[in-house]
Amino acid sequence: MHSKTKFVKDIRANEGIIYKVSRLYSNTVEDQKDLFQEIVYQLWKSYGSFKENAKVSTWMYRVALNTAISSLKKEKRRGARVTMDNFLLNRPYEIDTLTEERIALLYAHIKELSIVERGIILLHLEGKNYDEIATITGFTNTNVGTRLGRIKQKLKSQIKNGN
C-alpha cells in the first residue's frame, strides 16, 4: 500500500489518541487545535522511521506525547494552520451537557497533575498495562507501578477536596 494512503488510514484509525493528548496538554481550544495539527505533522514526518513490526498505537502515543512536551511554553508561537471546524474538537457526543461537564471535570483533575504524571495516567486510562506504559515512557515497570499508586492517591484527594 502506498505510504501516504497507509499513513492516512493509520491516523484515521487512531485519531482518538491525537484528540485526547492534544486536549490534555492544552489550556485553550486554539492551543488544542494547534497541538492536534502539530502531532499529525510530526507523525507524518517520522512515519518513514516507524517500523512495521511495532504497534501503531505505541508509536503514536510516543510521538504525540513527545510533541506535546516540545510544544510546552510555546504559546503564541503558532504556525499557519489548516482551518479546523470547532466541530472537530467539540465532538458531537459532548453536546450532552452533563457528559461534557463530567469529561471536562475529568480533564481538569488530570491537568492538575505534573507533566510526568499526566502522561502516565493517560496511558493507564487508555488501558495500557505496566509493560506498555514502561515502553512508551521509558520508566521501569516497578517505577510505573509506584508512580501510578501515587497518582491515584493524588487524584483521590483532589476529587475529595473538589466535590
Binding site: V8, R12, E15, G16, Y19, Q37, Y41, V82, R91, P92
Partner: peptide, 19 residues
C-alpha cells in the same frame, strides 16, 4: 471518539502540507 472518525483524508493531507 473512535466511532466518529471525523478526520477526512483531505484534512490529514492538508495538515501535513500546510504545516
Amino acid at each position: 471518539v473512535e466511532r466518529q472518525e471525523i478526520l477526512t483524508d483531505q484534512l490529514i493531507f492538508d495538515m501535513t502540507k500546510e504545516r
